[in-house]
């Protein structure tokens, strides 16, 4: 219930109508959207029961490792009802053709693979919010100071997922495991996205906001 209540509000992409359509415009819109979502995701993290009790340095390490996974999981969940398209925002839905023009076809395909996996499982909102918190707590940062405290957070979120499945999916005792087993694909897709946006950053043609840049640099 706390995780459902902590979900950030929807964000609109609002592509700049003054800019002509181009790959630069698409990427600028996405980077701007990601930057605004990141601000919301940081305050979301603070509402995860137990997260704020971690030391500040561990809170930072978890977010620096998992920020892209969180962004991608949110896009994947929003895209569940939309066949072959990614719903970056309600006003920014991208099909393969548009992704190709933005140079994002590989990433589009990878995220759609994740969407198909969740769609075939009929991922529910309760599972989505818990899985997202687990992705954060389980981000495998190399810089954790209090490993036991982070393990405690992982355990309590894992427990919440087990409890939910025990009540709502008695028919499939392996559902929790199936959900957890989607996390490697999420990690892989996130690493692909970080690499791609790092190379866009190096090109220097797309303006990026400071928080997005800061987190992109944390992953290099």
């Amino acid at each position: 219930t706390l995780l459902l209540g902590a979900e950030p509000e929807k964000v609109c992409a609002m592509p700049d109508p003054a800019l002509p359509d181009s790959d630069i415009k698409s990427l600028t819109t996405l980077c701007d959207l990601a930057d605004r979502e990141l601000v919301l995701n940081i305050s979301w993290a603070k509402h995860i029961p137990g997260f704020s009790s971690l030391c500040l340095s561990d809170q930072m390490s978890l977010l620096q490792s998992a920020w892209m996974e969180i962004l991608i999981l949110r896009v994947a969940f929003r895209s569940l009802l939309c066949e072959d398209k990614l719903v970056f925002a309600e006003d920014y839905i991208m099909d393969a053709e548009q992704a190709k023009s933005a140079g994002l076809l590989e990433l589009h395909k990878a995220i759609l693979q994740l969407v198909r996996r969740y769609r075939s499982m009929r991922l529910e909102r309760e599972e989505f919010v818990t899985l997202k918190a687990i992705a954060l707590a389980n981000s495998d940062s190399m810089h954790i100071e209090d490993v036991e405290a982070v393990q405690g957070l992982q355990d309590s979120l894992h427990e919440a997922l087990l409890d939910y499945e025990c009540v709502h999916h008695r028919e499939d005792p392996r559902r929790t495991g199936k959900l957890i087993m989607t996390l490697p694909l999420l990690r892989q897709t996130s690493a692909k996205a970080v690499r791609h946006f790092c190379s866009i950053k190096q090109d220097g043609r797309v303006p990026m906001h400071k928080l997005f840049l800061e987190l992109l640099e944390a992953n290099v």
């Binding site: 305050s43 603070k46 500040l56 809170q59 930072m60 977010l63 620096q64 928080l211 800061e214 944390a218």
Partner: peptide
Amino acid sequence: KEKHKILHRLLQNSS
């Protein structure tokens, strides 16, 4: 940590 000023600031904000 110096390099991650914005993340640090946002985490310290009370909201």
